[in-house]
């Protein structure tokens, strides 16, 4: 299941106190990493009836691989959002059939081969939001804020390109809305594990993000950990609904 998307597990958005703040931080302690893994497993299992494994992953058997790094969103110390980053094996390369040559071609087209190479690639994945916090703009804000270099470039001294795999509606509602541009690589092959996720009307594809030029600086340069007011997050979400989102991608 892929890159970036939000899932709804609770029927009603919760009324939350606007004076609260959301802390966004990278999971570093073992307890934080496990919290993120289990949170993702719980939501994916409830929405898509799939299970996880850290040592055997096979999309045709509805077994998903866990990401290598995690970022968490906490309100009052409670985990309400999480996302992962593959830094070793990427989903898009392993299951999406994308080769390094295809990635390098895109990097060259963007005149960025002096900074980036397909040898250094990562993948943003498994964005989940607790059901009763859905519909408040938290997911979209968390998505944007976690495209900070603090997270994307963790444990790396050189810049990495970012891969993503999602259905087209997610590229529109999250990436374009957040001013994160994506470059289409190719359609994602059909796997059993995605049957409850995408549809012919809303197919999945693999895309490339060249962070320094594709991610709006306000997000790429956002320092993490950081605390953000829920009131501002909600106002921002309301404003975005009025604004027409930018182009989907090119």
């Amino acid at each position: 299941m892929t890159g970036a998307h939000r899932l709804i597990i609770g029927p009603e958005p919760q009324r939350i106190d606007d004076s609260k703040r959301m802390l966004i931080k990278i999971a570093t302690r073992r307890s934080e990493i496990l919290q993120c893994q289990y949170f993702i497993a719980e939501i994916y299992n409830s929405a898509y009836n799939i299970v996880f494994s850290s040592d055997i992953a096979d999309l045709d058997q509805a077994i998903e691989p866990y990401p290598d790094r995690y970022v968490m969103g906490l309100i009052d110390g409670k985990l309400v959002a999480a996302a992962g980053l593959y830094i070793r094996r990427t989903y898009v390369a392993t299951y999406g059939g994308i080769t390094d040559d295809e990635i390098d071609t895109k990097i060259t087209e963007a005149n960025m081969s002096h900074r980036y190479s397909a040898k250094r690639k990562r993948e943003y994945t498994k964005l989940v939001v607790r059901g009763n916090y859905n519909g408040l703009g938290i997911g979209r804000f968390f998505h944007a804020a976690t495209h900070s270099r603090s997270f994307l470039e963790i444990d790396s001294s050189e810049p990495n390109v970012l891969l993503v795999c999602a259905k087209q509606s997610i590229y529109r509602s999250m990436y374009s809305a957040n001013r994160i541009q994506t470059r289409i690589l190719k359609p994602f092959p059909h796997y059993a594990v995605h049957e409850k996720y995408c549809s012919p009307d809303d197919p999945m594809d693999s895309r490339l993000i060249i962070p320094e030029i594709d991610i709006a600086p306000q997000w790429y340069n956002l320092p993490l950990p950081g605390e953000f007011s829920l009131q501002e997050i909600k106002q921002r979400a309301a404003k975005e609904i009025r604004d027409e989102p930018g182009p989907v991608s090119w």
Binding site: Q37, Y38, A41, E42, N45, V51, F52, S53, S54, D55, I56, I63
Partner: peptide, 9 residues
């Protein structure tokens, strides 16, 4: 149960 869903093996 989430332990077993998180690692089915």
């Amino acid at each position: 149960p989430l332990d077993l869903v998180a690692h089915w093996k």
